[in-house]
Design a protein around this nucleic acid. Structure first.
Length: 286
DNA sequence: AACGGAGCCAACCGCGAAGTC
DNA sequence: TGACTTCGCGGTTGGCTCCGT
């Protein structure tokens, strides 16, 4: 039944690749091309798992890869596509010639996510934090920040169905945001605090809120923001202008047949926008 | 100079889809 | 058709480097 197993995981080398191993892969691909990766270790004389060989090739050895820094244009493209389709790194990478999904993912996790957070924009929904305040108030029925569910716990032990917790704390008339940007070792809980009034004040959503209501709420308490679903927030985060720029990005940087999925998403969003223009006409510039 | 924390990124893990027998 | 595999993907980790104290 089925095929023979790829490799014996216990007896293959793992960890960083040596120049000699790289040379073997390059030589093998140069003479045989890319085919069945499970056969590559055996034929190339490598004590590695085929999966590991494929990863090394696609993420590092491929001759068409760029190894220099991301350009501002590439950065903007990633932002626009992430806003539209979320963390579909392989789809985003296909729009960026010479970049791998791993490149894009790493760049997002180490640079862009933090950059957005520092600008006061939620990296998941691409909305300003202040708007999240406002919208949550509406969702929960009362229409202002007083309706937020209050937690007497610290930010680290909040329970929240949404992938990222949104604990805010108001201390001394300043809003402090405790962001858990990643569940990996790079988690920066509290790093971007204080997300104080500096940028909230310049934010149209914050300006439209009744700030005295914030002050009347229980200072020192932590707020958590619950969203119905990631899909819902993603849909709501797409703005018309970003659709246009995302379309520019996707048509201008690269094109191949694999883009049809992204294109279908963009088309679907355009259709939604026509049906519900008031709900989707918000725009945020990075 | 030594240490610790943060940043970075290559590599691994686990899962679902697709392919093979 | 079912059992089993490979492939491709997104999420996560480990270790190296840099930087501040």
């Amino acid at each position: 039944m089925g095929r023979p197993r790829c490799c014996d995981k216990a007896n293959v080398k793992r960890g960083p690749w040596t120049p000699e191993e790289d040379a073997k892969i390059l030589a093998y691909v140069a003479s045989h091309g890319i085919g069945n990766w499970t056969l590559v270790p055996q034929k190339a004389g490598l004590n590695r798992c085929g999966k590991s060989c494929r990863l090394r090739w696609t993420n590092y050895l491929r001759p068409d890869l760029k190894h220099d820094n991301f350009t501002p244009e590439e950065e903007e493209c990633i932002l626009e596509l992430h806003k539209t389709i979320g963390s579909r790194w392989s789809l985003i990478a296909r729009r960026l010639p010479g970049r791998t999904d791993n490149d894009v993912k790493n760049y997002w996790n180490t640079k862009l996510k933090k950059k957005l957070a520092k600008m006061g924009i939620d990296p998941v929904t691409h909305k300003p934090f202040s708007q999240l305040f406002n919208e949550y108030g509406k969702i929960s029925g009362a229409g202002n920040i007083n309706s937020f569910q209050l937690h007497n716990s610290t930010p680290t032990n909040l329970t929240n169905p949404y992938p990222y917790p949104y604990p805010f704390q108001v201390v001394n008339h300043e809003i402090t945001y405790f962001a858990e940007a990643s569940s990996s070792s790079d988690t920066f809980l509290g790093q971007i605090a204080p997300y104080s009034n500096n940028y909230f004040h310049g934010d149209p959503y914050f300006a439209s809120m009744k700030t005295n209501e914030i002050q009347e709420s229980e200072y020192g308490e932590a707020f958590s923001l619950n969203y119905a679903s990631e899909e819902e927030t993603l849909e709501h985060s797409i703005s018309h202008d970003h659709m246009n720029s995302a379309a520019k990005c996707t048509s201008g940087v690269a094109s191949n047949s694999a883009h049809s999925f992204v294109d279908s998403i963009l088309a679907h969003d355009t259709e939604m926008r026509l049906q519900f223009p008031p709900a989707l006409n918000e725009n945020y510039d990075y």
